[in-house]
Design a protein around this nucleic acid. Structure first.
Lengths: 216, 216, 216, 216
DNA sequence: TATGAATGAGCCTTCATTCAT
DNA sequence: TATGAATGAAGGCTCATTCAT
């Protein structure tokens, strides 16, 4: 993911998805409108208009408005979770990351880039997660599913080399995630372009902070 | 705030506000329903029903549905910001907090308690802040308004005593806030009672983590 | 029923039903429009317009368009079946009908009057019964339910006195019903006022025909 | 008709009609769907799907959905009426039917077979006749058109021989039709296969009944 | 000729808001 | 003041019909 993250998840999904150009336009319109106005405040008429198609066309591949929301968030549940998992299982090997700092730097930069590149989708998710328990499940699975396995292995490795403090996975996760969220939140919440952000500086700062915290 | 936080902001607001019992019931119904279902998904009929009043009564003191949302979030904008500010200006004195750890412990426990006691209101706020830029302004003001002054003074004090690392206020704020959010987020997002949480243990852990990060 | 049949079932139902005047107007509009155009071809907007109310009012007491159809046919299922049954159980006593001719005359006149007075409702029922199996059940129950018991007793009585031919109830029912339908069908199918009909002459003719058939 | 009635009118019509195989499939789909769900409840998409063709093809020979209904009922108006008429004019000769019983037996069996073989089409007709006055006209013409002439001649013949009671044609028609309808109605209304029916027994019973009624 | 994507009018239904009682 | 019946403007969705391929 670290590499193909240059594009957003959503754009990558549209590219691969078996959808006509009009249906891609529909989903793009959904993402931008849901992100700007929220799901409930966005009418199917507005979606059709922004997509440049008729309202009937909107319903050709998507049976309901809810399905539009699901399709808009599809990349999150079907890409983020598996990729996060495989990332830690396949890529996060000791030989690849000689020291804890290297791992931290990779994870932090990757997640910050993810948050920034997929701002719109995250905004949509954040608005709906409070109301739709199935979405919450997606997020929970993302963290406590396969991903946790890979993450746990990485932890054990660096705890064995005494580079990483001997805390529980949950506490470590919270510490790292909290740090990332602290930097990413304003960027995601503020309208695009409103908030100046230098991902490299942020990564440097976070790595420095977290290293101090996580070193025994 | 640390003291009267035993109750939620919203309950305290209802107590003081110049509203009839029926109107208090209406606002309570709003908060719970908005928190459970979101603002758009909640009908005024449902509000009236839960409040045990007629639909006409709902519109007696509140001219529109939007006004109900504003009133539900009123305590945030008119209590949190000023209290946060005065807290740091009035209460956070060097003589009160001999060491950085004492200040951290106070702030962390206070904000965690706030997040937990006002879960419902925060949920409502979180859902709407993406869509309503005026709410965003409230949050921004909360941080970069008067509060920043008091926070800045406290920072300068402990930086002068070399107990606090020489970072910018923004970076310090992000670090502390990120830590707190990492712990508070799951509690706020999960349905009430779903997520086990021990505020004292969380405070201890966070103080330990942040002290390591923030000590020069 | 023979007596209060002076009014239609539907009017009697409206009188007794716990409905506001507007809701009565809505149901009346439904019956006439469904009868004229059929259920599917009638829009809720047209119903509202003919009832002289807003479309929202239509949905105040009736949760869906289907419920409007059900309510329009309610008198059939909740009045016809029970009344038919009780009629034969309570009223059709040997002492009341000295001879088979008296019974036939009563039944024929009563059913013809019923068909003519409730033309509109029967038209609605006839259109929908092909598509809604639950309605079919209503009709079947009407005939093979309690009613059949009373009818069977009457049959046995006159078969015992040798005034009635020794056929099965089903064949007797079909013979009598067929005769009545032969007279009633054109009246029900043709638009109101189009088809001249003298119920007394029809009764006389039918009684004469059926007596010949049913006398041993 | 008595002979080729082994097939349904509709199948015979499809055979002779100048239609491509696809168009025949479309009409067959129409008849079955209209019969099962009613005209309004059947979408052109469903017709295309059941016929195994595209929606565009449906509209190739039939300019509108209404035209599909008309074509589905075409056999009724262009076969039943003329055949009924010619039947009585050409076939119902005194020399062919020595006695009234022979005529009755022929007519009853023929019409019962017609009703059963063409259940589906009759169902479609019955649903639409209430709403479309032009269809009603078809039925009325069927009876009071040329057919009545042939029927009238047959009546006069047997009234002259004093085998048939001296009633008006209308009354005789109603009596015979009522009898047939009494037997055919349940078969037509119930879903196929639901209602057990023996056409020969029914014919015997009806001939017996009607002979008693119609003999002076 | 056959396809099926595309259209847009119109449908059923909901809901914020008003107002006579 | 409180009620809740009434409103009517959208909103989501369906479907008969067309037309470029």
């Amino acid at each position: 993911m670290a590499v193909h993250q240059v594009e957003t998840l959503f754009a990558a999904y549209l590219e691969k998805a078996d959808l006509s150009n009009k249906q891609k336009a529909v989903l793009s319109a959904c993402l931008s409108l849901f992100s700007e106005q929220g799901f409930e405040r966005t009418s199917t008429a507005a979606i059709a208009k922004r997509a440049g198609v008729s309202e009937g066309t909107v319903y050709k591949h998507f049976k309901s408005k809810t399905e539009l929301l699901d399709a808009s968030l599809e990349p999150l549940s079907h890409s983020v979770v598996p990729q996060l998992a495989s990332e830690f299982i396949d890529e996060v090997h000791p030989e690849r990351f000689a020291h804890l700092e290297d791992l931290l730097r990779f994870v932090i930069h990757d997640r910050l880039a993810f948050a920034i590149n997929n701002r719109a989708m995250i905004r949509v998710f954040a608005q709906e997660v409070f109301v739709r328990s199935d979405l919450l499940q997606v997020g929970v699975n993302a963290i406590f599913g396969q991903f946790a396995v890979g993450f746990g292995r990485a932890i054990q490795h660096f705890q064995a080399t005494h580079e990483l403090i001997d805390w529980s996975s949950l506490r470590l996760l919270r510490t790292i995630a909290g740090g990332i969220i602290g930097y990413a939140l304003p960027v995601v919440m503020m309208p695009d372009g409103t908030y100046p952000f230098d991902i490299n500086q942020a990564t440097d700062e976070l790595v420095e902070s977290l290293l101090k915290t996580l070193t025994p």
